[in-house]
Protein backbone atom coordinates (compact mmCIF):
# COMPACT_ATOMS: atom_id res chain seq x y z
CA UNK A 1 0.00 0.00 0.00
CA UNK A 2 2.73 2.46 1.01
CA UNK A 3 6.39 2.04 0.12
CA UNK A 4 9.15 4.31 1.34
CA UNK A 5 12.35 4.15 -0.74
CA UNK A 6 15.64 5.64 0.48
CA UNK A 7 13.66 8.44 2.03
CA UNK A 8 15.82 11.27 3.30
CA UNK A 9 15.13 14.70 4.78
CA UNK A 10 17.69 17.37 5.64
CA UNK A 11 16.79 20.58 7.44
CA UNK A 12 19.76 22.74 6.52
CA UNK A 13 22.84 20.93 7.80
CA UNK A 14 20.77 18.71 10.10
CA UNK A 15 19.59 15.34 8.85
CA UNK A 16 16.23 14.37 10.30
CA UNK A 17 15.68 11.20 8.29
CA UNK A 18 18.68 9.45 6.68
CA UNK A 19 17.58 6.96 4.06
CA UNK A 20 14.59 4.93 5.23
CA UNK A 21 13.08 1.92 3.43
CA UNK A 22 9.74 0.64 4.64
CA UNK A 23 6.76 -1.24 3.25
CA UNK A 24 3.33 -0.96 4.79
CA UNK A 25 0.83 -3.49 3.51
CA UNK A 26 -2.92 -3.04 3.11
CA UNK A 27 -4.69 -3.25 6.46
CA UNK A 28 -1.46 -3.29 8.43
CA UNK A 29 -1.09 -1.34 11.68
CA UNK A 30 2.46 -0.04 11.79
CA UNK A 31 3.88 1.92 14.71
CA UNK A 32 6.86 4.26 14.41
CA UNK A 33 8.46 4.01 17.84
CA UNK A 34 11.47 5.91 19.09
CA UNK A 35 12.85 8.55 21.42
CA UNK A 36 11.78 12.15 20.84
CA UNK A 37 13.70 13.90 18.09
CA UNK A 38 14.48 10.72 16.18
CA UNK A 39 12.63 11.92 13.05
CA UNK A 40 9.53 9.74 13.33
CA UNK A 41 7.13 12.66 12.91
CA UNK A 42 9.10 13.94 9.92
CA UNK A 43 8.94 10.48 8.39
CA UNK A 44 5.18 10.34 8.93
CA UNK A 45 4.68 13.80 7.42
CA UNK A 46 6.61 12.83 4.31
CA UNK A 47 3.96 10.21 3.59
CA UNK A 48 1.24 12.85 2.97
CA UNK A 49 3.81 15.40 1.73
CA UNK A 50 3.33 17.88 4.57
CA UNK A 51 7.12 17.62 4.42
CA UNK A 52 8.78 17.28 1.03
CA UNK A 53 11.62 14.71 1.08
CA UNK A 54 15.14 15.84 0.20
CA UNK A 55 15.65 12.63 -1.74
CA UNK A 56 14.02 9.24 -2.14
CA UNK A 57 10.39 8.53 -2.93
CA UNK A 58 7.05 7.57 -1.40
CA UNK A 59 4.80 5.23 -3.33
CA UNK A 60 1.09 5.26 -2.58
CA UNK A 61 -0.94 2.44 -4.10
CA UNK A 62 1.64 1.99 -6.84
CA UNK A 63 1.95 5.71 -7.65
CA UNK A 64 4.92 7.92 -6.86
CA UNK A 65 3.39 10.62 -4.62
CA UNK A 66 5.71 13.25 -6.09
CA UNK A 67 3.70 13.00 -9.31
CA UNK A 68 0.27 13.42 -7.64
CA UNK A 69 -1.25 16.76 -6.68
CA UNK A 70 -0.47 17.08 -2.97
CA UNK A 71 -3.93 18.28 -1.95
CA UNK A 72 -5.61 15.41 -3.83
CA UNK A 73 -3.20 12.99 -2.14
CA UNK A 74 -3.97 14.33 1.33
CA UNK A 75 -7.72 14.02 0.79
CA UNK A 76 -7.13 10.25 0.42
CA UNK A 77 -5.12 9.98 3.65
CA UNK A 78 -6.64 10.51 7.10
CA UNK A 79 -4.57 12.46 9.60
CA UNK A 80 -4.94 12.76 13.37
CA UNK A 81 -2.56 14.64 15.65
CA UNK A 82 -2.13 15.19 19.35
CA UNK A 83 -5.03 17.26 20.70
CA UNK A 84 -7.02 16.64 17.52
CA UNK A 85 -6.12 19.86 15.67
CA UNK A 86 -9.80 20.71 15.23
CA UNK A 87 -10.63 24.11 13.71
CA UNK A 88 -11.65 26.18 16.74
CA UNK A 89 -13.98 28.50 14.81
CA UNK A 90 -16.07 25.72 13.33
CA UNK A 91 -18.67 23.49 14.96
CA UNK A 92 -18.01 19.79 15.37
CA UNK A 93 -20.22 19.03 12.38
CA UNK A 94 -18.38 21.57 10.19
CA UNK A 95 -15.10 20.10 11.35
CA UNK A 96 -16.11 16.57 10.45
CA UNK A 97 -17.35 17.71 7.04
CA UNK A 98 -14.07 19.45 6.15
CA UNK A 99 -12.78 16.79 3.77
CA UNK A 100 -16.19 15.87 2.24
CA UNK A 101 -16.70 19.57 1.48
CA UNK A 102 -13.30 19.75 -0.17
CA UNK A 103 -14.26 16.68 -2.19
CA UNK A 104 -17.49 18.36 -3.17
CA UNK A 105 -19.90 15.90 -1.58
CA UNK A 106 -23.61 16.74 -1.43
CA UNK A 107 -25.14 17.67 1.92
CA UNK A 108 -27.17 14.47 1.87
CA UNK A 109 -24.11 12.29 1.30
CA UNK A 110 -22.27 14.04 4.15
CA UNK A 111 -25.15 13.45 6.57
CA UNK A 112 -25.52 9.80 5.47
CA UNK A 113 -21.85 9.14 6.08
CA UNK A 114 -22.00 10.94 9.42
CA UNK A 115 -24.87 8.67 10.42
CA UNK A 116 -22.71 5.63 9.71
CA UNK A 117 -19.61 6.94 11.45
CA UNK A 118 -21.30 8.31 14.56
CA UNK A 119 -22.53 4.86 15.48
CA UNK A 120 -19.08 3.35 15.08
CA UNK A 121 -17.25 6.05 17.03
CA UNK A 122 -19.89 6.60 19.73
CA UNK A 123 -20.44 10.22 18.79
CA UNK A 124 -23.48 11.86 20.34
CA UNK A 125 -25.88 14.09 18.44
CA UNK A 126 -25.53 16.73 21.14
CA UNK A 127 -21.92 17.37 20.15
CA UNK A 128 -22.41 18.26 16.53
CA UNK A 129 -23.46 21.86 17.01
CA UNK A 130 -20.94 22.47 19.79
CA UNK A 131 -17.56 24.06 19.26
CA UNK A 132 -14.38 22.03 19.93
CA UNK A 133 -13.55 23.92 23.13
CA UNK A 134 -16.85 22.78 24.63
CA UNK A 135 -15.83 19.10 24.45
CA UNK A 136 -13.47 17.11 26.69
CA UNK A 137 -10.07 15.97 25.45
CA UNK A 138 -11.23 12.42 24.79
CA UNK A 139 -14.34 13.64 22.98
CA UNK A 140 -12.27 15.96 20.83
CA UNK A 141 -9.97 13.10 19.90
CA UNK A 142 -12.94 11.00 18.83
CA UNK A 143 -14.22 13.88 16.70
CA UNK A 144 -10.77 14.21 15.13
CA UNK A 145 -10.86 10.52 14.31
CA UNK A 146 -14.32 10.89 12.81
CA UNK A 147 -13.06 13.78 10.70
CA UNK A 148 -10.14 11.66 9.50
CA UNK A 149 -12.33 8.67 8.69
CA UNK A 150 -15.51 10.17 7.26
CA UNK A 151 -14.31 10.16 3.66
CA UNK A 152 -13.22 6.55 4.12
CA UNK A 153 -9.54 6.96 3.22
CA UNK A 154 -7.54 3.74 2.72
CA UNK A 155 -4.72 5.07 4.89
CA UNK A 156 -4.73 6.76 8.29
CA UNK A 157 -1.74 8.61 9.76
CA UNK A 158 -1.71 9.32 13.48
CA UNK A 159 0.90 11.43 15.26
CA UNK A 160 0.89 10.82 19.02
CA UNK A 161 -2.92 10.82 18.91
CA UNK A 162 -3.40 9.82 22.53
CA UNK A 163 -0.83 12.09 24.15
CA UNK A 164 -2.27 14.82 26.24
CA UNK A 165 -5.14 12.69 27.49
CA UNK A 166 -5.35 11.48 31.06
CA UNK A 167 -4.15 7.89 31.66
CA UNK A 168 -7.60 6.29 31.98
CA UNK A 169 -9.16 8.00 28.97
CA UNK A 170 -6.03 7.28 27.05
CA UNK A 171 -6.19 3.54 27.55
CA UNK A 172 -9.93 3.45 26.90
CA UNK A 173 -9.68 5.36 23.64
CA UNK A 174 -6.66 3.34 22.54
CA UNK A 175 -8.48 0.05 22.94
CA UNK A 176 -11.58 1.49 21.35
CA UNK A 177 -9.61 2.61 18.32
CA UNK A 178 -7.66 -0.63 18.09
CA UNK A 179 -10.83 -2.66 17.92
CA UNK A 180 -12.59 -0.28 15.51
CA UNK A 181 -14.31 -2.18 12.79
CA UNK A 182 -13.85 0.84 10.54
CA UNK A 183 -10.08 0.45 10.77
CA UNK A 184 -10.16 -3.24 9.84
CA UNK A 185 -9.16 -2.77 6.21
CA UNK A 186 -7.16 0.40 6.62
CA UNK A 187 -3.41 0.78 6.72
CA UNK A 188 -2.55 2.81 9.79
CA UNK A 189 0.78 4.40 10.60
CA UNK A 190 1.02 5.71 14.15
CA UNK A 191 3.84 7.66 15.74
CA UNK A 192 4.44 7.24 19.46
CA UNK A 193 7.21 7.21 22.05
CA UNK A 194 5.19 5.02 24.40
CA UNK A 195 6.18 1.32 24.23
CA UNK A 196 2.95 0.06 25.84
CA UNK A 197 0.92 2.01 23.32
CA UNK A 198 3.05 0.69 20.48
CA UNK A 199 2.73 -2.96 21.55
CA UNK A 200 -0.97 -2.67 22.13
CA UNK A 201 -1.67 -1.02 18.79
CA UNK A 202 0.89 -2.27 16.32
CA UNK A 203 0.97 -5.43 14.21
CA UNK A 204 4.47 -4.38 13.43
CA UNK A 205 6.74 -1.84 15.04
CA UNK A 206 9.51 0.15 13.39
CA UNK A 207 11.96 1.16 16.08
CA UNK A 208 13.86 4.32 15.18
CA UNK A 209 17.15 5.76 16.34
CA UNK A 210 17.86 9.33 15.19
CA UNK A 211 17.43 9.32 11.42
CA UNK A 212 17.05 5.59 10.74
CA UNK A 213 14.93 2.51 11.39
CA UNK A 214 16.93 0.07 13.50
CA UNK A 215 14.51 -2.83 13.30
CA UNK A 216 10.98 -3.41 12.06
CA UNK A 217 9.06 -6.41 13.31
CA UNK A 218 6.46 -7.76 15.71
CA UNK A 219 6.80 -6.88 19.40
CA UNK A 220 8.17 -10.33 20.23
CA UNK A 221 10.74 -10.11 17.46
CA UNK A 222 11.98 -6.79 18.81
CA UNK A 223 12.08 -8.05 22.38
CA UNK A 224 13.53 -11.48 21.90
CA UNK A 225 15.50 -11.16 18.68
CA UNK A 226 17.00 -7.69 18.74
CA UNK A 227 19.10 -7.16 15.64
CA UNK A 228 21.55 -4.82 17.31
CA UNK A 229 22.59 -3.25 20.59
CA UNK A 230 20.37 -0.20 20.08
CA UNK A 231 17.22 -2.34 20.02
CA UNK A 232 18.43 -4.37 22.99
CA UNK A 233 19.27 -1.27 25.01
CA UNK A 234 16.07 0.52 24.11
CA UNK A 235 13.98 -2.08 25.94
CA UNK A 236 16.54 -2.64 28.71
CA UNK A 237 16.31 1.00 29.67
CA UNK A 238 12.57 0.69 29.98
CA UNK A 239 10.63 -1.84 32.10
CA UNK A 240 11.57 -4.84 29.94
CA UNK A 241 9.62 -7.55 31.75
CA UNK A 242 6.40 -5.58 31.68
CA UNK A 243 6.79 -5.04 27.96
CA UNK A 244 7.52 -8.74 27.45
CA UNK A 245 4.27 -9.60 29.21
CA UNK A 246 2.53 -7.10 26.95
CA UNK A 247 4.13 -8.51 23.82
CA UNK A 248 3.58 -12.24 24.28
CA UNK A 249 0.10 -13.66 23.76
CA UNK A 250 -1.34 -16.87 25.06
CA UNK A 251 -1.43 -18.49 21.61
CA UNK A 252 2.38 -18.03 21.41
CA UNK A 253 2.92 -20.22 24.49
CA UNK A 254 3.37 -23.97 24.83
CA UNK A 255 0.94 -24.86 27.62
CA UNK A 256 1.56 -28.65 27.85
CA UNK A 257 0.67 -28.89 31.53
CA UNK A 258 -2.61 -27.06 31.08
CA UNK A 259 -5.20 -29.69 31.94
CA UNK A 260 -8.00 -27.48 30.64
CA UNK A 261 -6.26 -27.68 27.27
CA UNK A 262 -7.23 -25.82 24.16
CA UNK A 263 -10.94 -26.41 24.01
CA UNK A 264 -13.36 -25.96 21.19
CA UNK A 265 -13.93 -22.30 21.91
CA UNK A 266 -10.19 -21.72 21.54
CA UNK A 267 -9.46 -20.78 25.13
CA UNK A 268 -6.29 -21.51 27.07
CA UNK A 269 -6.17 -21.53 30.83
CA UNK A 270 -9.85 -20.66 30.44
CA UNK A 271 -8.96 -17.35 28.81
CA UNK A 272 -9.20 -16.11 25.20
CA UNK A 273 -5.97 -17.09 23.48
CA UNK A 274 -5.58 -13.59 22.06
CA UNK A 275 -4.91 -12.27 25.62
CA UNK A 276 -1.42 -10.98 26.35
CA UNK A 277 0.45 -12.51 29.25
CA UNK A 278 -0.06 -9.26 31.15
CA UNK A 279 -3.84 -9.49 30.69
CA UNK A 280 -3.84 -13.17 31.64
CA UNK A 281 -1.80 -12.50 34.77
CA UNK A 282 -4.29 -9.95 36.04
CA UNK A 283 -7.21 -12.26 35.15
CA UNK A 284 -5.60 -15.17 37.03
CA UNK A 285 -4.89 -13.20 40.22
CA UNK A 286 -6.10 -15.43 43.07
CA UNK A 287 -5.51 -18.65 41.06
CA UNK A 288 -1.91 -19.60 41.97
CA UNK A 289 -2.07 -22.98 40.22
CA UNK A 290 -2.86 -21.71 36.76
CA UNK A 291 -0.83 -18.55 37.36
CA UNK A 292 2.21 -20.75 38.03
CA UNK A 293 1.59 -22.70 34.85
CA UNK A 294 1.43 -19.44 32.87
CA UNK A 295 4.72 -18.15 34.30
CA UNK A 296 6.53 -21.44 33.59
CA UNK A 297 5.28 -21.46 30.02
CA UNK A 298 6.30 -17.80 29.58
CA UNK A 299 9.88 -18.48 30.78
CA UNK A 300 10.21 -21.52 28.52
CA UNK A 301 9.00 -19.33 25.62
CA UNK A 302 11.61 -16.67 26.43
CA UNK A 303 14.44 -19.19 26.74
CA UNK A 304 13.52 -20.88 23.49
CA UNK A 305 13.38 -17.61 21.55
CA UNK A 306 16.66 -16.39 22.94
CA UNK A 307 18.33 -19.62 21.88
CA UNK A 308 17.14 -19.30 18.33
CA UNK A 309 18.25 -15.67 18.20
Amino acid sequence: MIKLRDLRKDFGAKTAVAGVNLHITRGEKLVLLGPSGCGKTTLLRMINRLVEPTSGSVWFDGENTATIDDTALRRRIGYVIQGGGLLPHRTVRENIFTVPELLGWSKQRCEDQLFVIKAILWLFDGWFDAFPHELSGGQRQRVALARALIADPPVLLMDEPFSGLDAVTRQLIRREVRSLWALRNKSVVMVTHDITEAFEFGDRIALMSPGRIEQAGTPTELLFRPQNAFVQNFFDQSDRLRHEWQAVRLHDLDLREDKTGPDNSGTRLGLPHGHTVAEAMSALAGDPARGGLLLQAFHRHKAAHRNTA
Binding site: R74, Q82, L102
Partner: peptide, 18 residues
Amino acid sequence: VSASVVDTARAMGMNRLQ
Protein backbone atom coordinates in the same frame (compact mmCIF):
# COMPACT_ATOMS: atom_id res chain seq x y z
CA VAL B 1 -3.12 31.17 14.21
CA SER B 2 -2.08 27.96 15.93
CA ALA B 3 0.48 25.96 13.93
CA SER B 4 -1.24 22.66 14.68
CA VAL B 5 -4.55 23.96 13.31
CA VAL B 6 -2.88 25.11 10.09
CA ASP B 7 -1.07 21.80 9.92
CA THR B 8 -4.15 19.64 10.15
CA ALA B 9 -6.05 21.91 7.78
CA ARG B 10 -3.29 21.33 5.23
CA ALA B 11 -3.33 17.62 5.99
CA MET B 12 -7.08 17.56 5.26
CA GLY B 13 -6.14 18.57 1.72
CA MET B 14 -6.79 22.34 1.70
CA ASN B 15 -4.82 24.29 -0.87
CA ARG B 16 -3.19 27.63 0.02
CA LEU B 17 -6.24 29.66 -0.94
CA GLN B 18 -8.71 27.48 0.95
